[in-house]
Design a protein around this nucleic acid. Structure first.
Lengths: 339, 339
DNA sequence: TAGCACCCTGAAAGCGCTTACTGAAAGCGC
DNA sequence: GCGCTTTCAGTAAGCGCTTTCAGGGTGCTA
């Protein structure tokens, strides 16, 4: 496990350590020596030790990212934006998937802190648990004090850091209007874990708009489940078992809508013949479903890109920066006018 | 950007650096001092500097992973397996998405080498380009010599490292048999970039099995495109434009099959009424397509998990380890018997 | 030719941590 | 009670690199 060190290179090139370092880092060095160092480095297959560099004070080209689940198409898309920016800037991404475990999320932030990553990204809805919030804030505070930058995507309001926020509430409201415009008056909702802020926003925006139009969303019309395909399946099935009395179902995420399609199909119901279905996010696959899903399209890649932009640039102002990205309702064939 | 250091903790606890270090690392220390150190560390919100630790010789808990595109459901699923094992072992994952750029892949391996990651995973088909192969081998050799571990998933044979190999050839052959069993005799194939080894294996296995059954795959029956949804769309459209003369289309990856569905739909053709379609991989979404896609199911999560297992354990033998994971043909409604 | 400014190179001081190694104190048998 | 082992805290030596600082050429001006 012995590595070629800068000292080896310097010796091979018959120069001092300092010169070797300078040559490799593109500082001014006599061309002659410069070439000799580079040749020696290449010959010895020298790879600088990133730890030593970091310790000696060189700035690190890395970024830490914590998300719920890389497997989920939503996060995969956002992560895609992150990776794109990272690749364009030669950054190393330290990615952690917490599998939606709040404890693990904090543990990972701690690890990233230990790595002295200059920036940390938190991707995905926060947890509305005061204890968790306090713990996370405590973890982040010294990091921020130490000059670390933090950016969050679609994250709880109470974390006072730079944020990228999809306009969940407005998007859901707009979707509600569009659905009302199709003549729907009886709705059902597939909701996610109530402690997630995203749920509160989307459900809230949707419900408020209905209320404004004089349409009520009965307590039995909302089913909760995990933000997964199977969660959507279960929630839809539950609604069906309760005796669904709705012409339109709103799934808080597209992934849940996919499960809902399956549940409806298994019951022999057709979309949108028997019931219209709408989702949220516009993950890549939903346009290829049959029927293509009506949804609120979020610029998923941009969520990741903008977060990286926040994380990579110093916040010079005194206030936290917030990038709001609007969603756009995309009407597809999964929603039909009420007969 | 000044951080709390171990020295600060030691001073606060009124012990020596060594004692502080030992206490924090769980070495034997008088309980009294032990508690004092831990209390001081907590009070100061101390986070050890991972670089300093690594430099001083502590083993690193990290793994480097390079894949083509985290956005792709196939890689997302494999990465999911990787992240799961990482989470269970408290490992930090340094993930790079190369966006299918061979140069970038080598550049990332170099970065990972600089990070002194104890293990590197290469996920996704290799490039059959001798120059690239040589460059990659040159990059890997000193890393392996230095005690680094490398594991690859679904990767070129010529890279002499521990590998996890989905049985592409056998899987494609089995699929071909199943399709022949349905009575199909005229086939078309949506193929990927020919320099990818995965393509060679899947196409080769499929074609050989047809040949063995006395069925030929004409040159015009194969369309090449990128391993993406849009690639599948384009390849399918191209086949259609050529005047598709097949009862069954084999898409080398499920993602391409998704695009093929769309292309067929746009031409008003039905699956499997007008043409049967089969894919490969069994990415999560294909069972929710209409009709659900016949495919060769690979244990995607396990690909990632097994690779991690290889990467985390020392190869004690002298030969490289190979874990072969078989695919299983899953017949769904996208393929029908020939009338 | 002497003097001055400049540009490069090399020597050396850390960055924050782990870990021999050293040494003191305590426990044991005889 | 003396010399032995054992236990555990402290001292200090690096890990590999960047960077400051000092010194020695070089080219210029006077």
């Amino acid at each position: 496990m012995s590595h070629v060190t800068l000292e080896d290179v310097a010796r091979a090139a018959d120069v001092s350590l300092a010169t070797a370092s300078r040559a490799l880092n593109g500082r001014r060095v006599t061309p002659h020596l410069h070439d000799r160092v580079l040749a020696a480095a290449a010959r010895l297959a020298y790879t600088p030790n990133a730890h030593a560099r970091a310790l000696a004070g060189a700035s690190r080209r890395s970024v830490g990212v914590v998300c719920h689940d890389v497997t989920d198409p939503y996060f995969a898309a956002v992560a895609g934006g992150v990776m794109r920016v990272a690749a364009d800037n030669d950054l190393l991404v330290m990615l952690a998937s917490t599998f939606r475990d709040p404890e693990r999320e904090i543990a990972y932030v701690s690890m990233l802190r230990a790595e002295r990553a200059p920036a940390i990204l938190l991707i995905g809805s926060g947890f509305e648990d005061p204890r968790w919030e306090r713990a996370m804030a405590a973890e982040l505070a010294p990091y921020l004090d130490g000059g670390g930058r933090v950016a969050v995507v679609s994250r709880h309001r109470t974390l006072k850091v730079d944020s990228v926020l999809p306009e969940n509430r407005a998007g859901a409201a707009e979707l509600a209007r569009a659905l009302l415009g199709l003549g729907h008056r009886r709705f059902a909702v597939l909701s996610g874990p109530p402690e997630l802020t995203t749920v509160a926003d989307r459900l809230g925006g949707f419900r408020d708009e209905l209320t404004a139009a004089g349409v009520a969303l009965g307590p039995g019309a909302v089913a909760e489940a995990a933000f997964t395909r199977d969660g959507g399946y279960r929630a839809m099935t539950e609604l069906l078992d309760r005796g669904l009395d709705a012409t339109c179902v709103f799934a808080c995420t597209d992934v849940m809508a996919v499960g809902a399609y399956a549940a409806l199909r298994d019951r022999g119901l057709s979309v949108p013949g028997d019931v219209s279905v709408a989702g949220f996010d516009d993950i890549p696959v939903v346009r290829d479903l049959t029927p293509p899903l009506t949804t609120v399209a979020l610029p998923l890649h941009r969520l990741g890109e903008e977060a990286m932009n926040l994380a990579l640039t110093e916040n010079t102002g005194r206030r936290r920066r917030i990038v709001r990205l609007p969603g756009e309702v995309v009407m597809r064939a999964s929603t039909a006018p009420v007969a």
